[in-house]
């Protein structure tokens, strides 16, 4: 019984990280993905902030799922999400103002990140709190990994550093395009290419296997 439950929880968790990865598979939440991933540290902070909002609001939505009237559910979700976003906003200001300036309006914009509302509507509203929060953690982790994948590439090429540490020494030639918006599109496109190429190869392998 316990093993079954654990296995199910594990599946719930892994769904967000791999099978339904919000960035690479579902291609959701592109606005912060493209905008704040100029450095790895920004990407991680953004990912963690979103993860916190995701877990907390999914938990609360799930707890209130039985008493939320269907007609006003979206309003309730938005209020709940906005609350936690405000809390995160204050927390980041308290932790570091530099980070707050770097992330800019994208912290407040977590409110309209479709991953969160999507999770609340599609998962949390139909599952008990533990399952909802496990799933939300997985999704948040998947989102963070996605942002980090972009942030690492863009920081290395655009600045020659990783987490602020210089990798190539003095004479590094920064690729200016990587810290500009087009660089975000290029890197995201390359990652999506890699993922879909993998998926297609797997399909082809399975097809030959069955034949």
């Amino acid at each position: 019984m316990t093993t079954v439950a654990t296995a199910k929880n594990w599946d719930e968790f892994m769904e967000g990280i791999w099978k339904q990865n919000p960035v690479f598979v579902m291609v959701l939440g592109m606005c912060p993905t493209l905008a704040v991933t100029v450095s790895a540290i920004n990407a991680i902070s953004m990912g963690l902030a979103t993860t916190f909002v995701l877990i907390a609001s999914c938990g609360l939505v799930s707890m209130m799922r039985n008493i939320t009237p269907k007609e006003v559910r979206i309003a309730v979700y938005i209020v709940i999400i906005a609350t936690f976003v405000t809390a995160v906003d204050y927390a980041i200001q308290a932790i570091s103002l530099t980070l707050y300036d770097a992330l800019g309006a994208f912290i407040q914009l977590i409110v309209v990140n479709c991953i969160i509302l999507g999770r609340a509507e599609a998962h949390a509203a139909r599952n008990p709190p533990v399952a909802a929060m496990t799933n939300a953690t997985g999704m948040g982790a998947g989102f963070t990994i996605g942002l980090l994948a972009l942030g690492v590439v863009r920081e290395i090429l655009g600045n020659g550093t990783l987490f602020g540490l210089s990798l190539f020494g003095e004479g590094f030639q920064p690729w200016v395009i990587m810290v500009l918006p087009p660089g975000g599109f290029f890197v995201l496109g390359s990652w999506l290419l890699l993922f879909s190429w993998r998926a297609r190869r797997k399909q082809a392998l399975e097809a030959t296997h069955h034949a």
């Binding site: 609360l60 209130m64 008493i67 939320t68 009237p69 007609e71 006003v72 309003a75 309730v76 209020v79 709940i80 906005a82 609350t83 936690f84 405000t86 809390a87 204050y90 927390a91 200001q93 308290a94």
Partner: peptide
């Protein structure tokens, strides 16, 4: 419905005020 909405606003208000005070 009123009760639920009231409850939600109450909880959210508490969280916001709490985090504002705390930080």
């Amino acid at each position: 419905m009123i009760r639920t909405l009231g409850l939600v606003s109450g909880i959210c208000g508490l969280i916001i005020v709490g985090s504002y005070q705390g930080t």
